[in-house]
Design a protein around this nucleic acid. Structure first.
Lengths: 382, 382
DNA sequence: GCTGATATTGACACCGGTTACCAAAATGGC
DNA sequence: GCCATTTTGGTAACCGGTGTCAATATCAGC
């Protein structure tokens, strides 16, 4: 399931049977005939048409297309003129076949946060804009038993040059190993370095969470609660570390009652809020590992008529649309996701991108998240 | 900009100049060599390898792949065995070239609501799961002057079988005409029929908005405000019509002061809220043309200490994540977007999908939106 | 004007599939 | 058992590009 760009007739080592896919086959070798596009007034011109019109060989036209340096200006001009005249556009499939390599990169994600995926995608597109590359987007079902097989099938079918792995599936080492094994490049995106610099782009979530917590402490908060992300997620672990470090730095402790479990969902925020705000001595501030849970905590506060931020400060993480839509607007940490998309693409396929957009080796592979102050945070009441 | 799946070396009638795309060409015809994937222990098996192993001709293997009906069970078994043994996966590019048609459909969108795009996308994927098709996703910059040219270039390069147009760009007739002209099938998704049944999938927003408004009236609301969507959007017009019709039905009028402009953004909701709630006689209920603006209105209500829903009921539209994350949870209209994705795909390429998923001609092309009651609505106070 | 070196260009095979067309084999009616 | 008919498999050409490598054009130097 969840296949964005897949499913050529399935006959792989992994799925032996014939697929359910039924194809119209009125008579042998006539399959798909009914589906021919009409085109507006004829076929697309080919490289041969261009060659004929320009009075050169198709190879020369190919050279022009691929910007070979060994061409007379005169020849190039003639060919370009012919190309324009005919409205020629090289056939990507034919090029891919001849090059023995396509021009695709894949974006694999299993992200609950749609905005994150689209922002990252936008960054990738920014990066590959002036290249020959195209992007296939493919959601992955993290929960599925055959997730790895699904991805394998996808990669085998599409054979992209490389794959971009968004968290949380970027944390899956088997997935990285699979890419490696199939000879598909990969770059993992994470909250912290997940791999060597060639295979990873990350942000400094931990530090910035610390910054946010220090801001709370500076305001005078001493009783600060924490809503965790799910166990086993690197992002969750980083956020927790950053939180605990900042607390320790200030000589504060986290009572176990202040440490609420969560799974990044709104309902978990509700539960955590109920638990934390029912305590005899509730926290005056709560750091939530993502915005959705923060929204849950905040609605509990509203239900309980607890003033935010007067009686309770709340901080989230992600800077999702929710963060600005809820009231009061949520202080949160913004992940430079679009920028990470750009960086990830550059790291993945530096050799296919315009020079201008290549990764400067001197740049750190870690991009900075930002703590964003909004109305959900204030000094605690006396 | 905003190109998800594009950009083969650009030399089209529309962009004559050589692109900035720089390619590594250490020596002529050696381009891209450095980028060869290593593959894990050798090349991918081809149809020839399968044919050799199975002791048949490649044509026979091709027949197996394409499920020709004229084959002995014995032959088929032998070929399938060979395919499995070698782990053969047909090369999509080669197939596309030979078929003179690729197996791509494109999803064009320019949607502020990321969740909507991903949900729709998921529906499309559900529909094409067992087919040979793959999906290219491409954001479109509605605001750009050369939007049409960008799309044209994209379609010419990728030559997808068809394109799915999501609102609001689905409302652009020029875009539909462009597809028609290029021989690319298309299906437009809208809040109301935008085209004939072959080219459109829509929901019944108008009716459901009416239902929502009638619910308000039934609760006793008489002073009902309206926050419009942007002028020129079909979706906005439909919602407004539904609203006005329901009001008229009940013999109510919409004072012009109760009719606030909006552009689907949160800030417009804030402005509308400020305006409506500052009136000497403010509305007791406000219908907002989308959730984001509803969130804006709600935060103004909170700022003004107006109790929601006690003193003010609010209804949104979209059932975005925001609707459930804000407090109190927003009553809204859910658009059956995933289902529409399924339907749109079936309408676009019925001849490429398994029989089971073909559109039943008897089904209406209009899918039902649903009014969802949540906590933001109650009877008006006396 | 000739020679050799170098820059440009083209002929041709090939990428991995598919179709057109034909031949061989199997089937079946008489 | 024979011939017409149907099923099956093979050969060659082709889809629209690119790689190889040889052929041709250009040019500096003598």
């Amino acid at each position: 399931m969840a296949v964005v760009a897949v499913d050529f007739a399935t006959l792989s080592a992994h799925h032996t049977g014939r697929t359910a896919g039924q194809q119209p086959e009125p008579a042998e070798d006539k399959a798909h005939m009914a589906a021919q596009t009409k085109g507006s007034g004829g076929k697309q011109p080919t490289i041969n048409d261009v060659a004929a019109l320009a009075g050169v060989s198709k190879k020369t036209v190919s050279r022009v297309i691929n910007r070979s340096e060994f061409l007379t200006e005169k020849t190039r001009k003639a060919v370009e003129q012919a190309i324009v005249t005919l409205g020629f556009v090289p056939n990507p499939q034919a090029r891919a076949l001849a090059f023995r390599r396509n021009f695709l990169i894949a974006l694999l994600h299993d992200n609950p946060n749609a905005q994150t995926v689209l922002n990252f995608q936008q960054g990738v597109l920014d990066a590959i804009k002036d290249s020959d590359l195209a992007l296939l987007v493919r959601p992955v079902d993290r929960g599925s038993d055959h997730m790895l097989d699904d991805v394998r099938t996808f990669l085998e079918k599409q054979r992209p040059i490389g794959a971009l792995l968004l968290p949380p599936i970027s944390e899956n080492d088997d997935l990285a190993a699979l890419c490696e094994d199939l000879g598909v490049r990969y770059v993992r995106v994470g909250s912290a370095p997940l791999d060597d610099a060639k295979h990873c782009v990350s942000s400094n979530d931990r530090e910035v969470v610390g910054e946010a917590v220090r801001a709370l402490i500076a305001l005078g908060h001493r009783r600060i609660g924490f809503v965790r992300g799910p166990r086993g997620f690197r992002s969750a672990a980083e956020r927790e570390k950053g939180f605990l470090e900042a607390l320790a730095e200030a000589g504060l402790e986290l009572p176990s009652a202040y440490n609420a479990p969560g799974n990044y969902r709104y309902t978990a925020g509700i539960e955590a809020g109920e638990a934390l705000l029912s305590l005899a001595e509730p926290p005056t501030a709560i750091f939530c590992s993502n915005d959705e849970m923060a929204a849950g905590v905040m609605s509990v506060a509203h239900d309980k008529r607890i003033d935010v931020p007067g009686a309770l400060s709340i901080i989230g993480f992600d800077d999702s649309p929710t963060a600005t839509h809820i009231w009061p607007a949520l202080s949160t940490v913004r992940w430079p996701i679009r920028e990470m998309g750009v960086r990830a693409a550059r790291t993945l396929v530096p050799d296919f991108l315009p020079l201008a957009s290549k990764v400067d080796e001197s740049e750190a592979a870690v991009l900075g998240s930002t703590f964003i102050q909004r109305q959900s945070v204030a000094a605690p009441k006396r």
